[in-house]
């Protein structure tokens, strides 16, 4: 499903400030797998997720998703690819604080050709699924940690993508919330989503995962 071949990412390539983030990485993630990318911060995990999401281009090598090269798409196609394939859950969730829950959930739908009525319908469906519809018109800044987490997941799933990428999702979460999040991930996994989580949180070790990849100083090792 997701395939990285000889991928290197060097920031400021060709300048004296060049920084190697990933070097010659090969990685394969199968359909419906739950994969952990473990490693200390700054090891290149986030870059790896960005490459899969086509948010950045590799300096060398190619990234394929469903046998299509996504590592060198023009902006228009990269965005369409993300809409169709990728749900992104960010570190600290990165919700837009002053917008309401509904507005946050609708963000991925705004640039799509979907009508306002259809978009809102989808928004309500997904909020109900994660039991936050009663807060639909509440500003995100007034939500509790658990609610935020559910909004972030609802937002990443509103377009029903087959792949979920999560970047340090449990950083700054207390153990109850972290536990809840892990349960949610397991549920999504059972529903057949392909999930890639970048984390250095040891609590993830209790999770039922298909594979763990260790990321260290730009290199990836399977265990």
């Amino acid at each position: 499903m997701i395939e990285l071949k000889n991928v290197s990412k060097i920031y400021n390539y060709g300048t004296p400030k060049a920084v190697v983030a990933l070097e010659d990485v090969n990685l394969y993630i199968g359909k419906g797998e739950l994969v952990l990318l473990m490693g200390p911060s700054g090891s290149g995990k986030s870059t790896l997720l960005s490459l899969i999401a086509a948010l950045t281009r590799p300096t060398k090598g190619i990234v394929k998703v469903e046998n299509k090269i996504v590592s060198k798409l023009p902006d228009h196609f990269a965005a369409l690819y993300r809409r169709e394939w990728i749900g992104f859950i960010f570190q600290r969730f990165n919700l837009i604080e002053e917008l309401s829950v509904l507005e946050n959930v609708l963000l991925p739908l705004v640039p799509t050709p979907l009508s306002i009525a259809r978009s809102e319908e989808r928004g309500w469906e997904i909020m109900e699924r994660f039991a936050i519809e009663h807060k639909a018109h509440t500003q995100v800044s007034k939500l509790s940690g658990g609610e935020r987490q559910r909004v972030a997941i609802a937002r990443s799933l509103v377009l029903d993508p087959p792949i979920i990428l999560a970047d340090e999702p449990t950083a700054n979460l207390d153990s109850t919330l972290a536990q809840q999040f892990l349960l949610l991930l397991e549920k999504l996994h059972e529903q057949g989503k392909t999930i890639v989580v970048a984390t250095h949180d040891p609590r993830f070790e209790s999770l039922h995962v298909d594979r763990i990849a260790k990321v260290e100083e730009g290199h990836v090792f399977y265990t």
């Binding site: 902006d75 228009h76 965005a79 993300r82 990165n94 963000l107 991925p108 705004v110 640039p111």
Partner: peptide, 20 residues
Amino acid sequence: RREIAILKALGWRIGDVLRL
């Protein structure tokens, strides 16, 4: 900047951000 980055990660094109 972070906000624009989020929008892009959620499937917005450069053109969509420009339009907004």
